[in-house]
């Protein structure tokens, strides 16, 4: 049993937004623990609540329309109860974030060097000019930008998408944070560049032992880099598992559908892909009981439980996996093995 160092503990996180159309329940009762040096993946489709979960961890949600409950603990401090000042101390130094679109994540009006420097100076107010400059060059070298001295004076638009994402990563890691939240960090990038960026994140992780929370819709990316996985659907965690278990014996009908719907490179025989019928529900008006039941092929097997009762996470198959489904364990494992092959 390896020693575990929890660096982030999230308990019963719920987030809802007030909108003109009503209250959107974006995240419901999400709990997880992030360990030092490990990567936790959150996978889900649009509207699953994965991105809102990510931004709640740094309290980046609109404070006027969002209501957040639950606790988020970093180094023994509850972020949900932290003052604005305490929060600022933590942001960027203990938790940092990488966004989806490197084209829009950098301030177009300042040089990239100035933006990296700014991120360092906020948390090192007494650093000298030369020290800051060295740090900037050092970070740019670390994330693999050629000619860092010269390029630090360039503006974001003078870089390619991949290079910009490297700069965003440099900004995120300049203060050596314990936790890196990466929200779809490679979705906007080409596949060869995606591979470069994922490699970069993993090698930096190996170097400084940070924990990564990786948000993505791409099961391929999850399979490549995550160690543990949360599958989210309609704001809830429906399955929590070791990455290998998830692909070998998935234990939730939604995961089964997701795995079946992915077309793969080995897929030589043409034919119908498996689909999940229908579309994800509106978060304004969630189905009663299990939110997945209207699209679930197996909901008829449970005497109406699925329509009335929200299932809670329970171990159904492999030791470290749990799923929120009313199906019997034996049945879950049987179907899971078929899907996982």
């Amino acid at each position: 049993m390896e020693a575990s160092h929890p660096v982030l503990i999230v308990e019963n996180l719920s987030v809802s937004f007030e909108t003109p159309d009503g209250i959107v329940h974006a995240v419901n009762d999400v709990s997880f623990v992030l360990h030092r040096g490990k990567t936790l993946g959150i996978v889900g489709e649009s509207g699953s609540g994965k991105s809102v979960t990510a931004s709640s961890l740094m309290r980046l949600n609109n404070s006027v329309t969002a209501t957040t409950s639950g606790s988020v603990q970093v180094s023994g401090k509850d972020l949900m109860a932290a003052s604005d000042d305490e929060l600022r101390q933590i942001r960027g130094s203990e938790i940092a974030m990488v966004f989806q679109d490197p084209m829009s994540a950098l301030n177009p009006y300042y040089t990239v060097g100035a933006q990296i420097a700014e991120a360092y100076e906020v948390h090192h107010p007494n650093a000298s000019k030369s020290e800051v400059q060295m740090k900037v060059i050092d970070m740019m070298t670390k994330v693999g930008i050629p000619n860092p001295e010269q390029r630090s004076k360039d503006y974001p638009h003078q870089f390619s998408g991949g290079m910009r994402q490297r700069i965003v990563i440099a900004i995120a890691l300049v203060n050596d944070p314990k936790i890196l939240i990466a929200d779809e960090p490679t979705t906007a990038l080409d596949v060869t560049v995606q591979a470069q960026i994922l490699d970069l994140m993993l090698s930096l992780q190996a170097e400084n032992g940070m924990a990564i929370l990786l948000i993505t819709h791409d099961l391929g990316v999850i399979a490549e880099v995550a160690r543990d996985v949360l599958v989210m659907y309609a704001g809830r965690v429906v399955e929590k598992a070791d990455v290998e278990d998830l692909f070998e014996i998935p234990t939730h009908p939604y995961s089964w559908g997701l795995l079946g719907a992915v077309s793969s490179l080995d897929d030589s025989h043409r034919g119908q892909l498996k689909t999940i019928e229908g579309a994800p529900p509106s978060l304004l008006n969630l189905p009663t009981g299990c939110a997945f039941h209207p699209r679930c092929t197996y909901s008829s097997e449970n005497n109406g439980q699925c329509e009335t009762l929200v299932p809670s996470l329970m171990q159904k198959g492999p030791e470290h996996s749990s799923s929120a489904c009313h199906l019997q364990s034996a049945r879950v494992v049987q179907i899971g093995r078929e899907v996982g092959k």
Binding site: L60, I90, R91, G92, S93, D101, A105, L106, E118, V122
Partner: peptide
């Protein structure tokens, strides 16, 4: 996004 990144920096 870049404004959110500014906040996330701790500014």
């Amino acid at each position: 996004d870049f404004v959110r990144l500014g906040v996330a920096k701790g500014l």
